[in-house]
Design a protein around this nucleic acid. Structure first.
Lengths: 197, 197
DNA sequence: AATAAATGTTAATCTAGATTAACCTCTTTT
DNA sequence: AAAAGAGGTTAATCTAGATTAACATTTATT
């Protein structure tokens, strides 16, 4: 079961580092497959995050609920992306974010209890995770700069260009939340863009 | 020379993972000590970043120059912090950021040519770097949420509380740039805060 | 000590984007 | 087919923060 389901994960890992058959088996013994329905929560803000998830199919949003009850989306995850509240996972303290499925979603879960053993038994996987996180950090820093140096319209055009697959699967009001603007203003931007052409 | 100068680095690493004397020696053989004067550049936007630097003393700013010539500060680094353009370093492509010294600054440099060897020879250091980057990523994500959910005044108060040491060493106009606001508006915020008390 | 350069403040005016509120599709459910 | 819900649009009004510009203060340079 896990052997078939985890194929996309193995393919993904092999783009970074080569794994021997034995290493693949060791890994698959330590992870689990799970299916969520649309609207289900993978993590709830306030809970302790027990898993890092690799998305096999579907789509999730990671968001923070602020003191005013406003939702701020920090990322979307589709096939071949990761999702979790890493801060909560690495420190085992209450999560700052919720992760909710926007579509029916299949994931491979790396549990907190097993992740150390995975690193110890397959050192190359520790390298792999280091590289993944380095890239995530770089992307996050760039997003901060964009939010300071680009107008809302420019940020929206960047998002469309960079993540065309995500843009088409997700309601506009969630994209607005991701960009840090209101859905009304995104609507205005879109009608402006139509006029531009 | 490097033995004395690198003491803060070894102390810092030992807070995360224990190193044997032999591992320490292996590490020190692969890193170099360097001193920069105030206003000197450690990295220039457009160059390829050859080093990740651990700050022994002093203070740096990491900033991006946008197409309008505007400077956007993404981070400050003081003693016991890291500085580099990680995106440029890991991919060996032109840097998006410059790193400039705000004070005379001493660093320990990890060169691109040696970092792989360090990881291979001292696997525990790869774990250490993974953990450092995980934390940096978490902090970066949290900063994005703050920039969306807090007013400029709230963000400034958060910065003061979180980094009191940095706040006192750095000109206000750089803090404004870090917060993504103008120096004039920060000045207004500060006079408001005085009235609040 | 005088001058210049860097940093910080205040106030008037302007604007990108928020807020509010009414209305318009589509889907989905009954 | 009617009703309800989810998602999206438009327009009027409002506001946090930008811009401009003049001036004040501190620090460095001669």
């Amino acid at each position: 079961m896990i052997q078939e389901k985890a194929q996309p994960l193995l393919r993904y890992i092999n783009r970074y580092i080569p794994l021997t058959k034995s290493e693949e088996d060791k890994l698959l013994a330590k992870v689990t497959y799970r299916k969520y329905l649309k609207n289900q929560y993978i993590i709830q803000q306030g809970d302790i995050c027990k898993y890092e998830c690799f998305v096999i199919s579907g789509c999730t949003k990671t968001f923070h609920l602020d003191t005013e009850g406003q939702e701020h989306i920090v990322m979307f995850s589709i096939e071949d992306w990761w999702t979790s509240d890493m801060g909560s996972f690495i420190t085992q303290t209450p999560a700052d974010y919720s992760v909710q499925c926007i579509e029916n979603t299949e994931v491979i879960q790396f549990s907190y209890d097993n992740i150390e053993a995975i690193y110890d038994q397959i050192p190359r996987l520790e390298r792999f995770f280091r590289q993944i996180i380095e890239r995530a950090f770089v992307a996050s820093q760039k997003r901060i700069v964009r939010s300071f140096s680009l107008t809302a319209k420019e940020q929206y055009l960047y998002f469309k260009k960079q993540y065309p697959k995500i843009e088409q699967r997700i309601p506009q009001y969630m994209i607005a939340s991701y960009l840090g603007i209101t859905k009304e203003f995104l609507s205005k931007i879109k009608s402006q863009i139509v006029l531009d052409q």
